[in-house]
Design a protein around this nucleic acid. Structure first.
Lengths: 301, 301
DNA sequence: TGCATCTATAACCTGAAAGGATGGATGTGG
DNA sequence: CCACATCCATCCTTTCAGGTTATAGATGCA
Protein backbone atom coordinates (compact mmCIF):
# COMPACT_ATOMS: atom_id res chain seq x y z
CA UNK A 1 0.00 0.00 0.00
CA UNK A 2 1.22 3.44 -0.84
CA UNK A 3 2.10 5.78 2.00
CA UNK A 4 0.60 8.53 -0.13
CA UNK A 5 -2.83 7.15 0.65
CA UNK A 6 -2.17 7.61 4.34
CA UNK A 7 -0.79 11.11 3.83
CA UNK A 8 -3.84 12.03 1.82
CA UNK A 9 -6.04 10.64 4.54
CA UNK A 10 -4.29 12.77 7.14
CA UNK A 11 -4.73 15.86 5.00
CA UNK A 12 -8.45 15.24 4.60
CA UNK A 13 -8.82 14.48 8.28
CA UNK A 14 -7.02 17.71 9.14
CA UNK A 15 -8.92 19.99 6.81
CA UNK A 16 -12.27 18.23 6.98
CA UNK A 17 -12.70 18.80 3.28
CA UNK A 18 -11.69 17.03 0.11
CA UNK A 19 -11.52 20.27 -1.79
CA UNK A 20 -9.19 22.02 0.64
CA UNK A 21 -7.07 18.93 1.22
CA UNK A 22 -6.70 18.51 -2.53
CA UNK A 23 -5.19 21.92 -2.97
CA UNK A 24 -2.90 21.41 0.00
CA UNK A 25 -1.69 18.22 -1.66
CA UNK A 26 -1.40 19.84 -5.09
CA UNK A 27 -3.83 17.49 -6.77
CA UNK A 28 -7.35 17.62 -8.13
CA UNK A 29 -10.35 16.95 -5.97
CA UNK A 30 -11.55 13.93 -8.01
CA UNK A 31 -8.14 12.32 -7.65
CA UNK A 32 -8.34 12.73 -3.89
CA UNK A 33 -11.90 11.39 -3.87
CA UNK A 34 -10.60 8.25 -5.52
CA UNK A 35 -7.67 7.94 -3.15
CA UNK A 36 -9.85 8.12 -0.06
CA UNK A 37 -12.32 5.72 -1.61
CA UNK A 38 -9.49 3.35 -2.39
CA UNK A 39 -8.18 3.52 1.15
CA UNK A 40 -11.62 2.75 2.50
CA UNK A 41 -12.02 -0.16 0.11
CA UNK A 42 -8.66 -1.64 1.03
CA UNK A 43 -9.40 -1.41 4.73
CA UNK A 44 -12.99 -2.51 4.24
CA UNK A 45 -14.04 0.31 6.53
CA UNK A 46 -15.71 3.67 6.06
CA UNK A 47 -13.37 6.37 7.37
CA UNK A 48 -15.47 9.47 6.76
CA UNK A 49 -19.11 10.39 6.71
CA UNK A 50 -19.75 12.60 3.70
CA UNK A 51 -21.99 15.60 3.69
CA UNK A 52 -22.19 18.84 1.84
CA UNK A 53 -20.50 20.40 4.83
CA UNK A 54 -17.43 18.27 4.26
CA UNK A 55 -15.86 15.09 5.56
CA UNK A 56 -16.28 13.99 9.18
CA UNK A 57 -14.27 11.17 10.70
CA UNK A 58 -15.99 7.95 11.70
CA UNK A 59 -14.89 5.83 14.65
CA UNK A 60 -12.33 3.86 12.58
CA UNK A 61 -11.30 7.14 10.98
CA UNK A 62 -10.52 8.60 14.39
CA UNK A 63 -8.48 5.54 15.29
CA UNK A 64 -6.45 5.91 12.14
CA UNK A 65 -6.10 9.68 12.36
CA UNK A 66 -4.83 9.44 15.91
CA UNK A 67 -1.79 7.38 15.00
CA UNK A 68 -1.14 7.82 11.31
CA UNK A 69 0.93 11.01 11.69
CA UNK A 70 3.34 9.35 14.10
CA UNK A 71 3.65 6.33 11.84
CA UNK A 72 4.41 8.51 8.85
CA UNK A 73 6.97 10.42 10.88
CA UNK A 74 8.66 7.12 11.80
CA UNK A 75 8.65 6.18 8.15
CA UNK A 76 10.25 9.44 7.11
CA UNK A 77 12.81 9.25 9.86
CA UNK A 78 13.89 5.76 8.85
CA UNK A 79 14.34 6.83 5.24
CA UNK A 80 16.27 9.88 6.38
CA UNK A 81 18.64 7.82 8.46
CA UNK A 82 19.11 5.31 5.69
CA UNK A 83 20.05 8.03 3.27
CA UNK A 84 22.65 9.38 5.64
CA UNK A 85 24.05 6.09 6.89
CA UNK A 86 26.86 5.79 4.36
CA UNK A 87 28.07 9.36 4.80
CA UNK A 88 27.71 9.05 8.53
CA UNK A 89 29.83 5.92 8.61
CA UNK A 90 32.46 7.77 6.56
CA UNK A 91 32.33 10.69 8.98
CA UNK A 92 30.86 13.08 6.49
CA UNK A 93 28.30 15.68 7.53
CA UNK A 94 25.99 16.62 4.68
CA UNK A 95 25.50 20.37 4.72
CA UNK A 96 23.00 21.95 2.36
CA UNK A 97 23.04 25.64 1.62
CA UNK A 98 21.03 28.03 -0.41
CA UNK A 99 23.20 29.94 -2.82
CA UNK A 100 21.89 33.15 -1.36
CA UNK A 101 23.03 32.07 2.09
CA UNK A 102 26.66 31.87 0.97
CA UNK A 103 28.77 34.59 2.45
CA UNK A 104 32.04 35.40 4.11
CA UNK A 105 31.15 33.40 7.20
CA UNK A 106 30.84 30.07 5.41
CA UNK A 107 34.53 29.31 5.29
CA UNK A 108 34.88 30.21 8.95
CA UNK A 109 32.04 27.89 9.82
CA UNK A 110 33.62 24.99 7.98
CA UNK A 111 36.99 25.68 9.60
CA UNK A 112 35.44 25.91 13.04
CA UNK A 113 33.54 22.66 12.49
CA UNK A 114 36.74 20.92 11.39
CA UNK A 115 38.43 22.16 14.58
CA UNK A 116 35.63 20.79 16.77
CA UNK A 117 35.31 17.47 14.95
CA UNK A 118 38.71 16.28 13.81
CA UNK A 119 38.33 13.48 11.30
CA UNK A 120 34.99 14.75 10.08
CA UNK A 121 34.36 16.47 6.80
CA UNK A 122 31.55 18.83 5.88
CA UNK A 123 30.14 18.00 2.46
CA UNK A 124 28.75 21.31 1.21
CA UNK A 125 25.89 20.90 -1.24
CA UNK A 126 24.35 23.85 -2.98
CA UNK A 127 20.57 23.62 -3.25
CA UNK A 128 18.32 24.91 -5.99
CA UNK A 129 15.71 27.54 -5.16
CA UNK A 130 12.84 25.15 -5.65
CA UNK A 131 13.94 23.53 -2.38
CA UNK A 132 14.45 26.30 0.18
CA UNK A 133 15.15 23.73 2.92
CA UNK A 134 18.32 22.78 1.04
CA UNK A 135 17.63 19.06 1.18
CA UNK A 136 16.70 18.98 4.84
CA UNK A 137 13.02 18.25 4.24
CA UNK A 138 13.86 15.18 2.16
CA UNK A 139 16.61 13.94 4.45
CA UNK A 140 19.25 14.58 1.80
CA UNK A 141 21.22 16.76 4.19
CA UNK A 142 21.85 16.74 7.94
CA UNK A 143 22.00 20.47 8.43
CA UNK A 144 21.42 23.47 6.20
CA UNK A 145 22.30 27.14 5.85
CA UNK A 146 19.12 28.83 4.72
CA UNK A 147 17.39 32.13 4.10
CA UNK A 148 14.35 32.78 6.26
CA UNK A 149 11.48 32.37 6.05
CA UNK A 150 10.92 29.20 4.08
CA UNK A 151 8.03 26.74 3.77
CA UNK A 152 8.15 23.81 6.16
CA UNK A 153 10.09 25.89 8.66
CA UNK A 154 7.80 24.87 11.52
CA UNK A 155 8.78 21.22 11.16
CA UNK A 156 12.47 22.03 11.61
CA UNK A 157 14.74 23.69 14.16
CA UNK A 158 16.21 26.99 13.07
CA UNK A 159 18.79 29.23 14.70
CA UNK A 160 19.06 32.71 13.20
CA UNK A 161 22.67 33.72 12.49
CA UNK A 162 22.44 37.25 11.19
CA UNK A 163 20.43 39.54 8.98
CA UNK A 164 21.46 41.82 6.16
CA UNK A 165 19.69 44.40 4.00
CA UNK A 166 18.03 43.41 0.80
CA UNK A 167 19.26 45.20 -2.28
CA UNK A 168 18.00 45.19 -5.81
CA UNK A 169 19.75 43.58 -8.80
CA UNK A 170 19.25 45.49 -12.05
CA UNK A 171 20.41 45.00 -15.60
CA UNK A 172 23.21 47.39 -16.49
CA UNK A 173 21.77 50.45 -18.17
CA UNK A 174 18.49 50.26 -16.29
CA UNK A 175 17.27 53.83 -15.60
CA UNK A 176 17.05 53.19 -11.86
CA UNK A 177 20.70 52.17 -11.82
CA UNK A 178 21.61 55.82 -11.80
CA UNK A 179 20.27 56.30 -8.28
CA UNK A 180 22.09 55.48 -5.07
CA UNK A 181 19.11 54.44 -2.94
CA UNK A 182 15.87 53.27 -4.49
CA UNK A 183 12.54 53.34 -2.63
CA UNK A 184 10.92 49.93 -3.04
CA UNK A 185 7.68 51.62 -4.08
CA UNK A 186 9.38 52.71 -7.31
CA UNK A 187 9.93 49.02 -8.19
CA UNK A 188 6.34 47.85 -7.82
CA UNK A 189 5.65 47.89 -11.55
CA UNK A 190 8.93 46.36 -12.65
CA UNK A 191 8.93 42.71 -13.82
CA UNK A 192 10.69 40.46 -11.32
CA UNK A 193 12.80 37.35 -11.74
CA UNK A 194 11.25 34.88 -9.31
CA UNK A 195 11.92 31.48 -7.76
CA UNK A 196 9.73 28.49 -8.77
CA UNK A 197 6.20 28.55 -7.33
CA UNK A 198 6.71 25.46 -5.16
CA UNK A 199 9.02 27.46 -2.93
CA UNK A 200 5.93 29.25 -1.63
CA UNK A 201 6.60 31.71 1.18
CA UNK A 202 10.25 31.85 0.26
CA UNK A 203 9.44 33.03 -3.25
CA UNK A 204 7.01 35.59 -1.84
CA UNK A 205 9.67 36.89 0.50
CA UNK A 206 12.04 37.63 -2.35
CA UNK A 207 9.24 39.29 -4.27
CA UNK A 208 8.45 41.26 -1.08
CA UNK A 209 4.85 40.32 -1.73
CA UNK A 210 3.93 41.48 1.77
CA UNK A 211 5.46 44.91 1.34
CA UNK A 212 3.58 46.02 -1.76
CA UNK A 213 0.38 47.07 0.00
CA UNK A 214 -1.60 44.77 -2.20
CA UNK A 215 0.00 45.90 -5.41
CA UNK A 216 0.26 42.88 -7.77
CA UNK A 217 3.61 41.35 -8.73
CA UNK A 218 4.79 41.17 -12.31
CA UNK A 219 6.81 38.02 -13.03
CA UNK A 220 9.31 38.39 -15.84
CA UNK A 221 11.07 35.05 -15.50
CA UNK A 222 11.35 32.03 -13.21
CA UNK A 223 14.76 30.58 -12.35
CA UNK A 224 16.10 27.83 -10.14
CA UNK A 225 19.80 28.62 -9.86
CA UNK A 226 22.05 31.66 -9.48
CA UNK A 227 23.49 31.33 -13.00
CA UNK A 228 20.09 31.39 -14.64
CA UNK A 229 19.02 34.15 -12.31
CA UNK A 230 21.96 36.36 -13.27
CA UNK A 231 21.42 35.68 -16.94
CA UNK A 232 17.74 36.52 -16.72
CA UNK A 233 18.52 39.85 -15.07
CA UNK A 234 21.35 40.70 -17.44
CA UNK A 235 19.11 39.91 -20.39
CA UNK A 236 16.48 42.30 -19.14
CA UNK A 237 13.73 39.79 -18.29
CA UNK A 238 13.35 41.42 -14.93
CA UNK A 239 14.93 42.67 -11.73
CA UNK A 240 15.21 40.94 -8.36
CA UNK A 241 15.80 41.55 -4.69
CA UNK A 242 18.99 40.01 -3.37
CA UNK A 243 20.97 40.10 -0.15
CA UNK A 244 23.61 42.80 0.03
CA UNK A 245 26.35 40.17 -0.05
CA UNK A 246 25.19 39.07 -3.50
CA UNK A 247 26.81 42.23 -4.82
CA UNK A 248 30.15 40.63 -3.87
CA UNK A 249 29.37 36.97 -4.44
CA UNK A 250 27.38 37.27 -7.60
CA UNK A 251 28.97 40.21 -9.35
CA UNK A 252 28.74 39.88 -13.10
CA UNK A 253 29.04 42.23 -16.06
CA UNK A 254 25.59 43.37 -17.05
CA UNK A 255 24.19 43.24 -13.54
CA UNK A 256 24.37 46.05 -10.97
CA UNK A 257 23.24 46.06 -7.33
CA UNK A 258 21.71 49.04 -5.53
CA UNK A 259 20.43 49.56 -1.97
CA UNK A 260 16.68 49.66 -1.53
CA UNK A 261 14.65 51.40 1.14
CA UNK A 262 11.27 50.20 2.32
CA UNK A 263 11.93 46.47 2.48
CA UNK A 264 12.79 44.52 5.60
CA UNK A 265 16.21 42.89 5.88
CA UNK A 266 16.77 39.22 5.08
CA UNK A 267 17.87 36.69 7.69
CA UNK A 268 20.25 33.79 7.38
CA UNK A 269 19.83 30.80 9.66
CA UNK A 270 21.10 27.30 10.27
CA UNK A 271 18.47 24.57 10.31
CA UNK A 272 18.32 20.91 11.32
CA UNK A 273 15.75 18.18 11.88
CA UNK A 274 14.23 17.87 15.38
CA UNK A 275 15.39 14.23 15.39
CA UNK A 276 18.97 15.55 15.41
CA UNK A 277 18.49 17.74 18.48
CA UNK A 278 20.71 15.38 20.39
CA UNK A 279 23.10 14.48 17.59
CA UNK A 280 26.55 15.63 18.70
CA UNK A 281 27.94 16.15 15.21
CA UNK A 282 25.00 18.19 14.00
CA UNK A 283 25.05 20.23 17.18
CA UNK A 284 28.76 20.85 16.79
CA UNK A 285 28.09 22.26 13.36
CA UNK A 286 25.34 24.47 14.72
CA UNK A 287 27.67 25.78 17.41
CA UNK A 288 30.32 26.37 14.77
CA UNK A 289 27.79 28.52 12.95
CA UNK A 290 26.89 30.48 16.06
CA UNK A 291 30.45 31.34 17.01
CA UNK A 292 31.26 32.30 13.42
CA UNK A 293 28.57 34.92 13.17
CA UNK A 294 29.74 38.20 11.68
CA UNK A 295 30.39 40.56 14.61
CA UNK A 296 28.33 43.43 13.25
CA UNK A 297 25.06 41.69 13.96
CA UNK A 298 23.71 39.22 16.46
CA UNK A 299 20.01 39.18 15.76
CA UNK A 300 17.95 36.62 17.66
CA UNK A 301 15.04 34.55 16.24
CA UNK B 1 6.16 5.48 -1.56
CA UNK B 2 4.71 2.01 -1.59
CA UNK B 3 5.20 -0.17 1.45
CA UNK B 4 5.64 -3.06 -0.97
CA UNK B 5 9.06 -1.69 -1.85
CA UNK B 6 10.08 -1.94 1.78
CA UNK B 7 8.64 -5.45 2.12
CA UNK B 8 10.51 -6.52 -0.97
CA UNK B 9 13.67 -5.02 0.43
CA UNK B 10 13.25 -6.98 3.65
CA UNK B 11 12.73 -10.19 1.71
CA UNK B 12 15.88 -9.66 -0.33
CA UNK B 13 17.84 -8.70 2.78
CA UNK B 14 16.63 -11.87 4.52
CA UNK B 15 17.31 -14.29 1.72
CA UNK B 16 20.38 -12.58 0.30
CA UNK B 17 19.14 -13.34 -3.18
CA UNK B 18 16.83 -11.73 -5.69
CA UNK B 19 15.84 -15.07 -7.13
CA UNK B 20 14.84 -16.63 -3.83
CA UNK B 21 13.17 -13.48 -2.54
CA UNK B 22 11.19 -13.26 -5.76
CA UNK B 23 9.66 -16.65 -5.29
CA UNK B 24 8.92 -15.95 -1.65
CA UNK B 25 7.08 -12.83 -2.78
CA UNK B 26 5.36 -14.60 -5.68
CA UNK B 27 7.02 -12.23 -8.14
CA UNK B 28 9.25 -12.67 -11.14
CA UNK B 29 12.90 -11.95 -10.59
CA UNK B 30 13.04 -9.06 -13.10
CA UNK B 31 10.14 -7.37 -11.32
CA UNK B 32 12.01 -7.60 -8.03
CA UNK B 33 15.22 -6.35 -9.61
CA UNK B 34 13.34 -3.29 -10.71
CA UNK B 35 11.72 -2.77 -7.32
CA UNK B 36 15.03 -2.83 -5.50
CA UNK B 37 16.53 -0.55 -8.10
CA UNK B 38 13.63 1.82 -7.69
CA UNK B 39 14.03 1.86 -3.93
CA UNK B 40 17.71 2.64 -4.26
CA UNK B 41 17.00 5.40 -6.74
CA UNK B 42 14.37 6.99 -4.53
CA UNK B 43 16.66 6.95 -1.52
CA UNK B 44 19.65 7.98 -3.59
CA UNK B 45 21.64 5.26 -1.85
CA UNK B 46 22.95 1.85 -2.83
CA UNK B 47 21.43 -0.74 -0.48
CA UNK B 48 23.08 -3.91 -1.79
CA UNK B 49 26.32 -4.88 -3.40
CA UNK B 50 25.60 -7.27 -6.25
CA UNK B 51 27.61 -10.29 -7.12
CA UNK B 52 26.90 -13.62 -8.71
CA UNK B 53 26.83 -15.01 -5.20
CA UNK B 54 23.83 -12.87 -4.37
CA UNK B 55 22.94 -9.60 -2.73
CA UNK B 56 24.90 -8.30 0.25
CA UNK B 57 23.76 -5.37 2.36
CA UNK B 58 25.72 -2.14 2.31
CA UNK B 59 26.01 0.14 5.34
CA UNK B 60 22.79 2.05 4.51
CA UNK B 61 21.19 -1.28 3.71
CA UNK B 62 22.01 -2.57 7.18
CA UNK B 63 20.53 0.57 8.73
CA UNK B 64 17.32 0.07 6.82
CA UNK B 65 17.16 -3.67 7.37
CA UNK B 66 17.57 -3.23 11.10
CA UNK B 67 14.42 -1.18 11.52
CA UNK B 68 12.21 -1.79 8.51
CA UNK B 69 10.55 -4.92 9.91
CA UNK B 70 9.42 -3.11 13.05
CA UNK B 71 8.13 -0.22 11.00
CA UNK B 72 6.15 -2.53 8.75
CA UNK B 73 4.77 -4.30 11.79
CA UNK B 74 3.61 -0.95 13.18
CA UNK B 75 2.01 -0.19 9.86
CA UNK B 76 0.17 -3.49 9.80
CA UNK B 77 -0.94 -3.13 13.37
CA UNK B 78 -2.40 0.30 12.76
CA UNK B 79 -4.35 -0.93 9.78
CA UNK B 80 -5.53 -3.91 11.79
CA UNK B 81 -6.79 -1.72 14.59
CA UNK B 82 -8.47 0.64 12.18
CA UNK B 83 -10.33 -2.20 10.56
CA UNK B 84 -11.58 -3.41 13.89
CA UNK B 85 -12.36 -0.04 15.47
CA UNK B 86 -16.00 0.13 14.43
CA UNK B 87 -16.83 -3.39 15.55
CA UNK B 88 -14.86 -2.92 18.70
CA UNK B 89 -16.78 0.22 19.55
CA UNK B 90 -20.01 -1.71 18.99
CA UNK B 91 -18.78 -4.52 21.25
CA UNK B 92 -18.50 -7.04 18.47
CA UNK B 93 -15.71 -9.60 18.41
CA UNK B 94 -14.88 -10.68 14.87
CA UNK B 95 -14.35 -14.44 14.84
CA UNK B 96 -13.13 -16.13 11.69
CA UNK B 97 -13.45 -19.85 11.24
CA UNK B 98 -12.51 -22.36 8.62
CA UNK B 99 -15.50 -24.35 7.51
CA UNK B 100 -13.62 -27.49 8.38
CA UNK B 101 -13.14 -26.26 11.92
CA UNK B 102 -16.87 -26.06 12.52
CA UNK B 103 -18.09 -28.72 14.89
CA UNK B 104 -20.27 -29.43 17.86
CA UNK B 105 -18.12 -27.32 20.16
CA UNK B 106 -18.70 -24.07 18.27
CA UNK B 107 -22.05 -23.29 19.76
CA UNK B 108 -20.74 -24.01 23.25
CA UNK B 109 -17.84 -21.67 22.65
CA UNK B 110 -20.12 -18.83 21.58
CA UNK B 111 -22.41 -19.42 24.55
CA UNK B 112 -19.48 -19.51 26.95
CA UNK B 113 -18.08 -16.29 25.49
CA UNK B 114 -21.48 -14.59 25.84
CA UNK B 115 -21.53 -15.67 29.47
CA UNK B 116 -18.10 -14.21 30.13
CA UNK B 117 -18.67 -10.99 28.22
CA UNK B 118 -22.24 -9.84 28.65
CA UNK B 119 -23.09 -7.17 26.11
CA UNK B 120 -20.60 -8.50 23.59
CA UNK B 121 -21.47 -10.39 20.47
CA UNK B 122 -19.31 -12.80 18.49
CA UNK B 123 -19.57 -12.14 14.77
CA UNK B 124 -18.81 -15.51 13.20
CA UNK B 125 -17.34 -15.24 9.71
CA UNK B 126 -16.69 -18.28 7.60
CA UNK B 127 -13.42 -18.07 5.67
CA UNK B 128 -12.59 -19.49 2.29
CA UNK B 129 -9.85 -22.10 1.99
CA UNK B 130 -7.54 -19.76 0.16
CA UNK B 131 -7.10 -17.98 3.51
CA UNK B 132 -6.36 -20.63 6.14
CA UNK B 133 -5.82 -17.93 8.80
CA UNK B 134 -9.52 -17.05 8.48
CA UNK B 135 -8.91 -13.32 8.14
CA UNK B 136 -6.44 -13.10 11.01
CA UNK B 137 -3.43 -12.41 8.82
CA UNK B 138 -5.14 -9.44 7.18
CA UNK B 139 -6.62 -8.06 10.38
CA UNK B 140 -10.14 -8.82 9.21
CA UNK B 141 -10.82 -10.86 12.32
CA UNK B 142 -9.72 -10.67 15.95
CA UNK B 143 -9.57 -14.37 16.63
CA UNK B 144 -9.98 -17.48 14.50
CA UNK B 145 -10.88 -21.16 14.74
CA UNK B 146 -8.50 -22.91 12.39
CA UNK B 147 -7.18 -26.23 11.22
CA UNK B 148 -3.49 -26.81 11.81
CA UNK B 149 -1.00 -26.44 10.33
CA UNK B 150 -1.44 -23.36 8.19
CA UNK B 151 0.98 -20.93 6.52
CA UNK B 152 1.86 -17.88 8.61
CA UNK B 153 1.28 -19.84 11.79
CA UNK B 154 4.57 -18.70 13.28
CA UNK B 155 3.49 -15.07 13.24
CA UNK B 156 0.39 -15.85 15.31
CA UNK B 157 -0.47 -17.37 18.67
CA UNK B 158 -2.21 -20.71 18.50
CA UNK B 159 -3.78 -22.86 21.20
CA UNK B 160 -4.64 -26.39 20.14
CA UNK B 161 -8.17 -27.42 21.13
CA UNK B 162 -8.49 -31.01 20.03
CA UNK B 163 -7.62 -33.41 17.25
CA UNK B 164 -9.76 -35.80 15.28
CA UNK B 165 -9.10 -38.49 12.67
CA UNK B 166 -9.04 -37.65 9.01
CA UNK B 167 -11.53 -39.58 6.89
CA UNK B 168 -11.95 -39.72 3.17
CA UNK B 169 -14.86 -38.27 1.21
CA UNK B 170 -15.84 -40.31 -1.84
CA UNK B 171 -18.49 -39.96 -4.53
CA UNK B 172 -21.37 -42.37 -3.99
CA UNK B 173 -20.74 -45.50 -5.97
CA UNK B 174 -16.99 -45.26 -5.77
CA UNK B 175 -15.55 -48.80 -5.54
CA UNK B 176 -13.67 -48.01 -2.33
CA UNK B 177 -16.93 -46.94 -0.70
CA UNK B 178 -17.71 -50.56 -0.11
CA UNK B 179 -14.94 -50.88 2.44
CA UNK B 180 -15.14 -49.92 6.09
CA UNK B 181 -11.54 -48.83 6.60
CA UNK B 182 -9.33 -47.74 3.74
CA UNK B 183 -5.52 -47.73 3.92
CA UNK B 184 -4.28 -44.37 2.69
CA UNK B 185 -1.84 -46.11 0.38
CA UNK B 186 -4.77 -47.33 -1.70
CA UNK B 187 -5.71 -43.71 -2.39
CA UNK B 188 -2.36 -42.55 -3.74
CA UNK B 189 -3.39 -42.74 -7.37
CA UNK B 190 -6.84 -41.25 -6.96
CA UNK B 191 -7.43 -37.68 -8.15
CA UNK B 192 -7.93 -35.29 -5.22
CA UNK B 193 -10.04 -32.20 -4.79
CA UNK B 194 -7.60 -29.63 -3.40
CA UNK B 195 -7.55 -26.17 -1.87
CA UNK B 196 -6.10 -23.25 -3.88
CA UNK B 197 -2.29 -23.25 -4.15
CA UNK B 198 -1.83 -20.06 -2.11
CA UNK B 199 -2.87 -21.96 1.00
CA UNK B 200 0.50 -23.70 0.86
CA UNK B 201 1.19 -26.04 3.77
CA UNK B 202 -2.50 -26.18 4.58
CA UNK B 203 -3.30 -27.52 1.12
CA UNK B 204 -0.47 -30.02 1.42
CA UNK B 205 -1.78 -31.22 4.76
CA UNK B 206 -5.17 -32.06 3.28
CA UNK B 207 -3.48 -33.80 0.39
CA UNK B 208 -1.34 -35.62 2.97
CA UNK B 209 1.60 -34.76 0.74
CA UNK B 210 3.99 -35.74 3.50
CA UNK B 211 2.49 -39.18 3.96
CA UNK B 212 2.79 -40.45 0.40
CA UNK B 213 6.46 -41.45 0.57
CA UNK B 214 7.24 -39.25 -2.38
CA UNK B 215 4.37 -40.51 -4.47
CA UNK B 216 3.06 -37.57 -6.58
CA UNK B 217 -0.39 -36.09 -6.03
CA UNK B 218 -3.05 -36.07 -8.73
CA UNK B 219 -5.24 -32.95 -8.59
CA UNK B 220 -8.72 -33.45 -9.97
CA UNK B 221 -10.21 -30.08 -9.02
CA UNK B 222 -9.48 -26.96 -6.97
CA UNK B 223 -12.18 -25.45 -4.75
CA UNK B 224 -12.41 -22.61 -2.29
CA UNK B 225 -15.62 -23.37 -0.38
CA UNK B 226 -17.42 -26.36 1.10
CA UNK B 227 -20.26 -26.19 -1.41
CA UNK B 228 -17.96 -26.34 -4.39
CA UNK B 229 -15.93 -28.99 -2.67
CA UNK B 230 -18.94 -31.24 -2.11
CA UNK B 231 -20.10 -30.72 -5.67
CA UNK B 232 -16.69 -31.56 -7.08
CA UNK B 233 -16.61 -34.80 -5.10
CA UNK B 234 -20.20 -35.76 -5.92
CA UNK B 235 -19.50 -35.10 -9.60
CA UNK B 236 -16.57 -37.46 -9.51
CA UNK B 237 -13.77 -34.93 -10.14
CA UNK B 238 -11.89 -36.42 -7.24
CA UNK B 239 -11.88 -37.50 -3.60
CA UNK B 240 -10.64 -35.63 -0.53
CA UNK B 241 -9.51 -36.06 3.03
CA UNK B 242 -11.82 -34.44 5.58
CA UNK B 243 -12.16 -34.39 9.35
CA UNK B 244 -14.41 -37.05 10.79
CA UNK B 245 -16.94 -34.41 11.83
CA UNK B 246 -17.45 -33.47 8.17
CA UNK B 247 -19.43 -36.69 7.87
CA UNK B 248 -22.01 -35.04 10.13
CA UNK B 249 -21.63 -31.39 9.12
CA UNK B 250 -21.25 -31.86 5.40
CA UNK B 251 -23.43 -34.85 4.68
CA UNK B 252 -24.90 -34.69 1.20
CA UNK B 253 -26.46 -37.17 -1.20
CA UNK B 254 -23.81 -38.37 -3.58
CA UNK B 255 -20.98 -38.11 -1.07
CA UNK B 256 -19.95 -40.78 1.43
CA UNK B 257 -17.31 -40.63 4.17
CA UNK B 258 -15.08 -43.54 5.24
CA UNK B 259 -12.35 -43.90 7.86
CA UNK B 260 -8.78 -43.99 6.59
CA UNK B 261 -5.76 -45.62 8.14
CA UNK B 262 -2.22 -44.39 7.67
CA UNK B 263 -2.79 -40.66 7.94
CA UNK B 264 -2.20 -38.57 11.03
CA UNK B 265 -5.15 -36.92 12.74
CA UNK B 266 -6.06 -33.29 12.11
CA UNK B 267 -5.96 -30.65 14.83
CA UNK B 268 -8.25 -27.73 15.49
CA UNK B 269 -6.93 -24.64 17.21
CA UNK B 270 -7.83 -21.13 18.17
CA UNK B 271 -5.50 -18.40 16.93
CA UNK B 272 -4.98 -14.70 17.61
CA UNK B 273 -2.49 -11.96 16.84
CA UNK B 274 0.41 -11.48 19.28
CA UNK B 275 -0.67 -7.86 19.65
CA UNK B 276 -3.84 -9.14 21.31
CA UNK B 277 -2.02 -11.19 23.94
CA UNK B 278 -3.21 -8.73 26.54
CA UNK B 279 -6.59 -7.93 25.03
CA UNK B 280 -9.18 -9.01 27.61
CA UNK B 281 -11.96 -9.68 25.13
CA UNK B 282 -9.83 -11.80 22.84
CA UNK B 283 -8.44 -13.70 25.80
CA UNK B 284 -11.93 -14.33 27.12
CA UNK B 285 -12.82 -15.89 23.82
CA UNK B 286 -9.71 -18.06 23.92
CA UNK B 287 -10.58 -19.22 27.42
CA UNK B 288 -14.12 -19.92 26.25
CA UNK B 289 -12.63 -22.17 23.59
CA UNK B 290 -10.41 -23.99 26.06
CA UNK B 291 -13.17 -24.78 28.54
CA UNK B 292 -15.48 -25.92 25.72
CA UNK B 293 -13.13 -28.56 24.40
CA UNK B 294 -14.81 -31.89 23.74
CA UNK B 295 -14.03 -34.11 26.76
CA UNK B 296 -12.71 -37.06 24.77
CA UNK B 297 -9.51 -35.34 23.83
CA UNK B 298 -7.22 -32.72 25.34
CA UNK B 299 -4.19 -32.77 23.10
CA UNK B 300 -1.57 -30.09 23.69
CA UNK B 301 0.36 -28.18 20.99
C1' DT C 1 -35.02 31.22 -7.57
C1' DG C 2 -30.34 31.54 -8.63
C1' DC C 3 -25.77 31.04 -6.68
C1' DA C 4 -22.05 29.11 -4.12
C1' DT C 5 -20.05 25.09 -2.19
C1' DC C 6 -19.23 20.35 -1.61
C1' DT C 7 -18.62 15.57 -3.24
C1' DA C 8 -19.38 11.89 -6.92
C1' DT C 9 -19.06 10.23 -11.65
C1' DA C 10 -17.60 9.84 -16.58
C1' DA C 11 -14.30 9.86 -20.23
C1' DC C 12 -9.81 10.05 -21.56
C1' DC C 13 -4.72 9.77 -21.31
C1' DT C 14 -0.24 8.82 -19.60
C1' DG C 15 3.06 6.21 -17.31
C1' DA C 16 4.41 2.69 -14.03
C1' DA C 17 4.90 -2.18 -13.14
C1' DA C 18 4.58 -7.00 -14.19
C1' DG C 19 5.85 -11.05 -16.99
C1' DG C 20 8.60 -13.72 -20.46
C1' DA C 21 12.64 -14.19 -23.02
C1' DT C 22 17.33 -13.37 -23.22
C1' DG C 23 22.11 -11.83 -22.31
C1' DG C 24 26.42 -11.61 -19.53
C1' DA C 25 29.36 -12.94 -15.77
C1' DT C 26 31.24 -16.51 -12.91
C1' DG C 27 32.06 -20.62 -10.26
C1' DT C 28 31.67 -26.02 -10.74
C1' DG C 29 32.00 -30.68 -12.34
C1' DG C 30 32.84 -34.17 -15.82
C1' DC D 1 39.12 -27.50 -20.80
C1' DC D 2 34.57 -27.04 -21.84
C1' DA D 3 29.66 -27.42 -20.88
C1' DC D 4 26.51 -26.32 -17.34
C1' DA D 5 24.24 -24.18 -13.51
C1' DT D 6 23.38 -20.04 -11.09
C1' DC D 7 22.53 -15.20 -10.55
C1' DC D 8 21.53 -10.59 -11.79
C1' DA D 9 20.52 -7.12 -15.67
C1' DT D 10 18.09 -5.71 -19.91
C1' DC D 11 14.59 -5.58 -23.69
C1' DC D 12 9.87 -5.72 -25.15
C1' DT D 13 4.99 -5.97 -24.71
C1' DT D 14 0.72 -5.58 -22.24
C1' DT D 15 -2.13 -4.29 -18.65
C1' DC D 16 -3.85 -1.34 -15.10
C1' DA D 17 -3.63 2.25 -11.72
C1' DG D 18 -3.82 7.16 -11.15
C1' DG D 19 -4.26 11.81 -12.81
C1' DT D 20 -6.92 15.66 -15.13
C1' DT D 21 -10.94 18.03 -17.08
C1' DA D 22 -15.72 18.41 -17.44
C1' DT D 23 -20.02 17.70 -15.42
C1' DA D 24 -23.76 16.10 -12.45
C1' DG D 25 -26.22 15.99 -7.93
C1' DA D 26 -27.24 17.73 -3.36
C1' DT D 27 -27.95 21.50 -0.27
C1' DG D 28 -27.58 25.93 2.39
C1' DC D 29 -27.89 31.07 1.51
C1' DA D 30 -29.02 35.64 -0.42
Amino acid sequence: MDTRLLRSFVAVADTGSLTRAAERLFLSQPALTKQIKQLETRLGVRLFTRSRAGMTLTEPGRTLAARAPALLADWDRLLRETKGAADRAARVLRVGFMASAANEATQHIVAEFARRRPGWRADMRQAVWSDPTAGLADGDTDVALVRLPFPGQDALRVAVLFSEPRWIALPAGHPLGARDLIPFRDLWDEPFVAAPPESGAWRDHWLAAGEREGHPVRIGAVTDRPDDWLSAIANGYGIALAPESAARYYARPGVVYRPVSGVSPSRVGVAWAPADDTDPVVQDFVRACLVSRPPQDGTGP
